[in-house]
Design a protein around this nucleic acid. Structure first.
Lengths: 218, 218
DNA sequence: CCAATCTGTCACCGAGTGGTGATTAGCAAG
DNA sequence: CTTGCTAATCACCACTCGGTGACAGATTGG
């Protein structure tokens, strides 16, 4: 070992990559952005220290230093998630007057459906939630559901569900259905035999959803 | 290489472990069983050649030989899945007379809900379906949905959905909701704020589900 | 009895993982 | 210029992964 030909060390590194500046705040942000982007685009399968470091274009050591590892990084994502939700989902009624609880839930369903369809990161997190039971995903899930519950509460106003209907359970079903078909569509363009490719397919789905809501809430 | 000190070869192997019999069929079955068990218990995260080989107590080389690798093994699982579905879900009406399409869908919902709750393997596969888009999971998904569609068709008999309702889309929503709450419950004991721990919780969920079904189909 | 075949085992490969300690590079104050 | 701080990198660790080629022992057919 350690034999001859030790005069290698070819430093052919072409420093085309712009010199990494010495800026902690910017690096932290780059790491966070890379993590979110990676999670949204690749999913939680290949989500790891090395992948994030590669995506951020920095050494993984910095992730340990600045976030205390992957867990801390995920936690930081979760913290962002609150504002994330309220950014993506409109907080007004869209100019409609919501007279009944049924009106409200129909509108909320549509908003949530569209928001989830348009948000890859959120989709990945939901998929993660139903696939793995770890501390990481627990925190993410908590942040997400908290933000969502707050949003619903704000939208609800003074409307109350009809008597004799377990609104909490029914709403859970509706939101579960929305989450599942959006997840399924993102993977296989269909769900339980229902195609979910083009806008026409989604209109059918939305109509069915509204019909379900109207069926229970009138 | 291949130098001196070749007289080692200490055969201190204590053959306590029962001699592995030379039986291809049994080994194949052991591998298949281990794969299904592993998938059901650990999920698709740590599902790999090495893990299956460990679980089956044999060398991974045999998995390559007998199944042509993980893909072939998954395919074999998928083949099993057909009978699997029809084994776990009752094929009769449970002594009820299903007079209307609403009766039918209510009953199917409950059967599917219970079957999914009782079947860890199926749950993992569903979770896999909404999390990853690979050839492996595509085959599994196909086998599952085919078996499911066949079951529904058999149960349907001559009943037809009410006019003016897109039964396919509505049913997709209902089944999506079921799948999602069962997945969520298996991971976090709740879904969208609705607790899903004890039998009482599940009764509430079932009631809400039935209410949704009855709302659209009367 | 020998040779071919089949079952099962072992050792190894390259690549990638999470994680840690030591080191270098840039900047500012003294 | 020297000193000290810190952002950033490098080198390495032990481990796991999927995958392959070679080999040993049993079984079977000629």
């Amino acid at each position: 070992m350690a034999v001859a030909n030790a005069a290698v060390k070819i430093p052919l590194e072409i420093p085309v990559v712009e010199k990494r500046v010495r800026n902690r705040a910017a690096t932290e942000q780059a790491i966070l952005d890379a993590a979110k982007r990676l999670l949204a685009e690749e999913g939680f399968q290949n989500f790891g220290i090395n992948a994030v470091a590669r995506g951020a274009g920095c050494d993984k050591q910095l992730i340990y230093r600045y976030y205390g590892g992957l867990n801390g990084l995920v936690e930081a994502i979760g913290t962002d998630l609150g504002s994330w939700v309220t950014d993506r989902i409109p907080d007004d009624t869209g100019g409609m007057f919501l007279l009944t609880y049924g009106d409200l839930m129909e509108r909320l369903s549509m908003l949530f459906l569209d928001a989830l369809r348009a948000d890859p990161l959120m989709r990945r997190i939901v998929a993660w939630e139903v696939s793995e039971s770890s501390e990481q995903v627990r925190r993410l899930s908590e942040a997400r559901s908290k933000a969502l519950a707050g949003w619903i509460e704000r939208m609800r106003g003074s409307l109350v569900p009809p008597k004799g209907v377990d609104a909490q359970a029914v709403n859970a079903m509706i939101f579960a259905a929305i989450q599942h078909i959006v997840l399924a569509s993102a993977v296989s363009d269909q769900c339980a035999g229902l195609a979910l490719k083009n806008g026409k397919d989604w209109e059918k789905a939305a109509t069915a959803l509204k019909r379900l809501v109207r069926g229970v809430y009138g």
